[in-house]
Design a protein around this nucleic acid. Structure first.
Length: 715
RNA sequence: GGGCGGUUAGCUCAGUUGGUUUAGAGCGUCACAUUGACAUUGUGAAGGUCGCAGGUUCAAAUCCUGCACCGCCCACCA
């Protein structure tokens, strides 16, 4: 090592160092007897995905934890992989086909699936390569995919297990239907967007010419399937109408007027049309009041034969026609502008159509009970703790889970003659144990299950976290993980969600390119704090971290080229006040960093490290070492490299390698231990006083440091 | 409609169980500095009635109540 460049160049270092780690197989766990392993199953990114800021943060967090525990010499395993992502992937490939002027039906099921696999081979590992650029130390030899042969076995086993227990049943039942994806979707795959529409007030004549009852609706086209009118039992206005009969206009069908507590007397006229086939609440009322159920909208989004003369029309045309017809019959009382939340498909944004369909469901009651218990009793801990309440609330009110999807890409439902596939999340729910070999009793499963930590985003708690918990408890009789860490959402500087489609996204790979992986990682963490629900991304933090990397680089340069002698061994009796001070501060730092990492306060840890390295070690100790006979520069610096390694793995390893070429690489070196005897608050106080005196002298424009130097440097 | 988080220097954020006479950091701004690494630097400075209104306390950015604004999640607003 002759010449070292004046600035740190991440690009020349990162790939080289990553290859060195992979070659050395340091990402594989070293299993030692009697040592409890630390294990993370990665939230498998969709094969359609590319790294976004949320991934960058979440995987940095996981890598910090992994690298830290690896250095504490625990057997440490971070399991990677990808998710086949049913709807998402199918949509992407369908879009590709569309460019060729084809639909999936032109290809047929078999050829289409083949095509998706081709797509997967080509692009499916892109995101894993991006994780490598970030520095993630996953055990790539254990990479899994949710449609691997073994994984398919696991899914089948799980399905049959539930089936044999009688917990799986088939509809018909009302489901959320996406007409564009032409599949059922679950409640949590819906999102709501604000939408401007009209509220139409329709007049339904009462039998025997006794007048009218008015109902308000945003969906007049569904009236064709009405089988009742409902009012609140508390509503005085309608008391005498309950039990009477109304005539459904346009269809001339007699329908009862019922009372149900689900009706809010404040809304509209207080009377509501009941369409059990096309509204979830109405379906519930139909069950309690034993009402008829009439399908007037089909799975293709068009009016069915039961819609009479409107059959075959699409929804909007039918709506307009019906409004027109009601107007001519003088049955439209009024219409007003109305804003409400429109339910749309989370994947494609198409308005969701609730309809009756034959689907597969998992009964949730019995699965939920133990999943509530383990969280209530803190067998599984949520961090931040507030998510515990959110989880429990959802689990307590859980509905049966619609697990069939009318897609081609996914796990086929094991049953004769079934064409449907399973909800992607049914397979993701098995992730932490399926990737370790379940249902086979593998060595890995025995050694590494249950896992230690699940780190993920808050929007996935129900969709995924909850389902892993009940699946594992039922199928493995074990919790899937001990801690659930919910990281902050990364917003842009305006406080808006980062999103590619909104143009508010920022590509972490560009940041890595521009500032280096270490700076990207440290900068992101620097912005976070454990309890924070959201953080605003600011490129300044990444830029500052890049400068910090450079500072570290130059600290090394200085230490290497300075010809000061180093203390060969560390002996307390010979130390100067400055030495005692830095040792005291250093040992406090070791303790703080350790505590903060273990309690998921990585933002705090990174800020603390930054502060110490730059403003205590560099600005004071290194500066003073220039005046002192012997010093502890190297000793302190090597501990700093270790403490920083989980946060900035590339630069720390590189510097370490420059100085320790043939020794143990930093990645598997031993995490430093605190020596409490060296923490001395009196020394620190004394030193702080001198720092203040020096600052005062500087303010006055310099002066004589001789007396102070005596105090500081004399051993 | 319910639940939750936030509101501290121009910007992004710290501030541990309420208490070291001047509330911290990074970025930005200003002044000065090239004397053993780093100008991606060093030294120093300016900049805050801690969202608003009450309350508890000897003492509140920190606890309580109400309100406002921003954001997130949930929900059967027809």
């Amino acid at each position: 090592m002759m010449e070292i460049s004046k600035t740190y160049e991440p690009k020349q270092v990162e790939e080289k160092i990553y290859n060195l780690w992979e070659k050395g197989e340091f990402f594989k766990p070293l299993v030692k007897k009697g040592k409890k392993p630390f294990v993370i199953a990665i939230p498998p990114p969709n094969i359609t995905g590319s790294l976004h800021m949320g991934h960058a943060l979440n995987n940095t967090i996981q890598d910090v934890m992994t690298r830290y525990y690896r250095m504490t010499q625990k057997p440490t395993l971070w399991l990677p992989g990808t998710d086949h992502a049913g709807i998402a992937t199918q949509n992407v490939v369908e879009k590709e086909l569309k460019k060729e002027g084809k639909t999936r039906h032109d290809l047929g099921r078999e050829k289409f699936i083949k095509r998706v696999w081709q797509w997967k081979e080509k692009y499916g590992n892109l995101i894993l390569d991006q994780l490598k650029k970030l520095g993630c130390s996953c055990d790539w030899s254990r990479t899994r995919f949710t449609l691997d042969t073994d994984y398919v076995k696991a899914v089948e086993t799980a399905f049959l297990h539930y089936y044999k227990k009688g917990w799986i049943y088939q509809g018909p039942r009302i489901v959320n239907w996406c007409p564009r994806c032409s599949t059922a979707i679950s409640d949590i795959e819906i999102k709501y967007i604000p939408s401007k529409t009209k509220l139409w007030y329709l007049k339904y004549p009462l039998k025997n010419n006794e007048g009218f009852i008015s109902v308000a609706t945003t969906r007049p086209e569904t009236m064709l399937g009405d089988t009742a009118v409902a009012v609140s039992p508390k509503d005085e206005r309608y008391k005498n109408l309950i039990g009477k009969t109304a005539i459904l206009p346009l269809m001339n069908r007699e329908i009862p007027i019922i009372a149900d507590r689900l009706i809010d007397p404040e809304f509209g006229t207080g009377a509501v049309k009941v369409t059990p086939a096309h509204a979830i609440v109405d379906y519930k009322m139909a069950k309690t009041h034993k009402l008829g159920i009439i399908n007037v909208i089909g799975e293709d989004g068009k009016m069915t034969q039961d819609a009479g003369k409107y059959a075959g029309l699409n929804i909007l045309d039918a709506r307009n026609k019906i409004i027109e017809d009601l107007k001519t019959q003088n049955l439209l009382e009024k219409e007003e502008d109305y804003e409400h939340s429109l339910a749309v498909c989370d994947r494609c944004g198409t308005p969701v159509e609730p309809l009756i369909s034959k689907q597969w469901f998992v009964k949730m009651k019995k699965l939920a009970r133990p999943a509530i218990k383990v969280v209530k009793e803190n067998k599984i801990k949520f961090i931040p703790a507030r998510y515990k309440k959110i989880y429990l609330e959802w689990m307590k009110n859980i509905e049966d889970w619609c697990i069939s999807r009318q897609l081609w890409w996914g796990h086929k439902i094991p049953l004769e003659g079934e064409n449907d596939v399973l909800d992607t999340w049914f397979s993701s729910a098995l992730w932490p144990f399926a990737i370790l070999g379940w249902p086979k009793k593998t060595k890995d499963l025995k050694t590494f299950y249950p896992t230690t930590l699940l780190s993920t985003a808050q929007d996935i708690i129900y969709l995924w976290v909850a389902r892993m918990i009940f699946s594992s408890l039922e199928l493995c009789k074990k919790i899937p993980f001990r801690d659930v860490y919910i990281h902050s959402t990364v917003l842009n500087i305006e406080g808006k969600r980062m999103s590619k489609s909104l143009g508010t996204g920022l590509d972490p790979l560009e940041l890595i390119e521009k500032y280096g992986a270490d700076a990207t990682r440290l900068g992101l963490l620097y912005l976070t704090s454990r309890e924070q629900q959201a953080i605003r991304f600011s490129e300044d933090a990444i830029r500052a971290s890049k400068n910090f990397a450079n500072k570290l680089w130059n600290l090394n340069r200085f230490i290497q080229i300075s010809n000061k002698s180093q203390y060969s061994s560390f002996k307390t009796q010979k130390l100067s006040l400055a030495d005692k001070w830095i040792m005291s501060r250093l040992n406090e730092l070791i303790k703080d960093t350790t505590d903060k990492i273990e309690s998921y306060q990585m933002g705090e840890a990174s800020r603390r490290l930054y502060e110490f390295v730059w403003h205590e070690y560099a600005d004071w100790y290194i500066e003073m070492s220039k005046l002192q006979e012997n010093n502890l520069n190297v000793y302190v610096f090597e501990i700093i490299l270790k403490l920083l390694h989980p946060f900035m793995p590339f630069i720390t390893e590189y510097i370490w390698q420059l100085n320790h070429e043939k020794e143990t690489p930093l990645i598997i070196s031993e995490w430093p231990k605190t020596d409490k005897k060296l923490i001395n608050l009196k020394t620190e106080e004394e030193f702080e006083k001198i720092k203040k005196e020096i600052t005062e002298i500087r303010k006055k424009g310099g002066g004589n440091f001789k007396n102070l130097a005596e105090k500081i440097f004399k051993p």
